[in-house]
Design a protein around this nucleic acid. Structure first.
Lengths: 348, 348
DNA sequence: TTAATTAATTGGAACGTTCCATATAAGTCA
DNA sequence: TGACTTATATGGAACGTTCCAATTAATTAA
């Protein structure tokens, strides 16, 4: 029926007003008479008008759009998927829409998508950076006055806002808990040693051990891929050392699940024969058997907070870097054996 | 340093050519001399030029952009996250960028985000529709000539392209396999009965049973939420009926994991004491203990194919609906007991 | 009554790009 | 020589919106 798309001029013509008036209606300006407003909105509905945000933001000062970008390093990891969902929630209800891209830890891909997003005129960016992201990758954005918040992983040497979880406090609490259950040899399993997140978690583990008066021999920290397979591998090596650990705090939940798998493969039951605690509290942690004791970080909440921070900066116009650390909490379930100990105590 | 953003006019001025020439360079036109091209690209780099796609697609005929939209019903479900990743892959390498939104099964939210995406001028849409999505929700898009492909779930009565997996063949193969292992009472567990996907999977189950000469008493199909918790619930009910089933094909992997949990809670070992097969082949299926026998659907591949189909239609200009059904395959692991049977056979 | 105020509306210019038709320069052919 | 090509380069006009300054109409103040 229509030859081209319906524009404000078409609406104006049909409603018998000027395009300026239609524009005012579009923006909900109080300067327009209720009657005219009604007439115009009716015409818009009738003609099936769809707003052209591209044209709008072209005209608007400095081309600020209603688009924010979010790039994550691994969307197939449910932690980051949850993060994206959290961002989406607040971004959506603020009338923004999100460009989402997955880098799969590729720094080149990350560069590409960020460039592409800039071309599309994003007014802000949330990035969970790929490994080895440098400050230079984000520099042009901030130079152009585009607010950026990095999430989950920090980018060293960069002056942008960030939101990371309190990794140190998390593993500290985990070790403290295990020590209170009587464990004396606690391993740290999984993760790649070249990352800031790994270092922080390891630090918390070491601090808690020494605070509990326990030693932390280097052979008890065993790194591996931060995945389920990595966990299987790590527990295998952990159980082969002479003076076996009786408990482990794992780099993340994926590793912890792998550790459980590895234990079962050796006829050991996680929670009863060996205590394991994870990190992240992914959705499956609660329903797994045994339910995983872990450090809960609420990635969705983190995403929400990141988005709120970003929106604040977008609205403020000026973006002074702000770093927020997301507090975490130990949630005690079954895989650490605490529940079991408790029932034993009741029997005694 | 710069007061406003750098535009083609600035580049033209600095390079001593006209804006038209700059535009030609931008589009990689062969009409421009190599020398000028080099000079122009150099100036662009020097001045930190960033292309304004908004302005470009405003001018371009009918405002076709390099944006495609993807809306999924539940991004926290790794199946859909994988789907999105698959889409992202091909979309990215075709020079497009994706708007991604999560509806969380809310039809209102879906309407909002689709409207918002239209305003931003997407040139195509991939949607894994929320439950109860109607043809009317997609009608305006196709009327406007915007290619749409629905994935995973079909929307009845709509004339758009679709890509769904061969649900019937999947459960058929599962039942066939279980029957060949000697099972005579096979349950169908989990899922909501009001969906097309459920019906198709149930159909395949029934057909295979009758093909194997087995009966399919109604008490053996037990619906529940398509989640891990739903699985726990369903197996609980399944084991309480008089003539217990000895095997189950589950609505999806989440349900299957729940079923395994429920079995263990009753001191039954999945694979040994009860055969369970899932549907989807999520990443954890392979590494779980026991490894899950399931129907592999390769959501990432599905995403890739959906994106390819969409891009084809975008490039073709005209979009005749095409439906492709994604074939699935039974992958035999441990939870169905086949491996065990095999080793028993070897001993015999 | 006129002047001043308020309320509602409006035409044109601008945003950054692409497209079209035209222009220039150099080379080729009778 | 003049009339063609061919290879490059170019000024406007257009895309759909918003903003600004200006206009009209209705109301109030003096």
């Amino acid at each position: 029926m229509a030859k081209g798309r319906v524009t404000v001029v078409d609406i104006a013509k049909a409603a018998g007003v000027s395009k300026s008036t239609v524009s005012l209606v579009l923006q909900g300006s109080p300067l327009v008479n209720e009657g005219t407003r009604a007439k115009v909105t009716a015409t818009m509905r009738d003609l099936g008008y769809v707003y052209n945000r591209g044209a709008a933001s072209l005209r608007q000062a400095n081309g600020r759009s209603k688009i924010i970008g979010i790039v994550v390093n691994d969307l197939t990891n449910s932690f980051f998927a949850e993060l994206a969902v959290g961002v989406d929630m607040v971004v959506q209800s603020a009338g923004f829409v999100q460009f989402l891209s997955n880098t799969g830890e590729s720094i080149d891909r990350q560069r590409e998508v960020i460039a592409s997003m800039r071309e599309h005129g994003i007014s802000g960016l949330i990035v969970s950076p790929a490994r080895a992201t440098e400050a230079a990758d984000l520099k042009p954005l901030v130079a152009a006055g585009i607010p950026v918040v990095v999430a989950v992983r920090n980018v060293p040497g960069t002056k942008v806002s960030s939101i990371v979880s309190d990794n140190r406090a998390g593993t500290y609490a985990a070790v403290e808990h295990l020590a209170s259950l009587g464990h004396r040899r606690v391993a740290f399993l999984g993760g790649f040693p070249d990352t800031a997140v790994f270092d922080e978690r390891l630090d918390g583990y070491r601090e808690a051990l020494s605070a509990a008066g326990l030693e932390s021999p280097p052979e008890l920290v065993i790194s591996s891929a931060p995945s389920r397979a990595g966990g299987v591998d790590a527990i295998g090596r952990a159980l082969s050392i002479p003076d076996r650990p009786t408990a482990a705090v794992c780099f993340n939940d994926a590793v912890a699940f792998g550790v459980c798998d590895g234990l079962r493969a050796r006829r050991m039951e996680p929670g009863r024969d060996f205590a394991v605690v994870g990190f992240d509290d992914v959705i499956e942690a609660k329903t797994a058997v045994p339910a995983l004791t872990t450090i809960s970080v609420d990635p969705q909440g983190m995403g929400r907070r990141a988005a709120q921070l970003l929106l604040k900066q977008i609205n403020a116009g000026k973006a002074d870097a702000e770093s927020i650390v997301n507090s975490v909490r130990l949630v005690i379930r079954e895989s650490c054996g605490a529940k079991q100990k408790q029932s034993e105590r009741k029997l005694a």
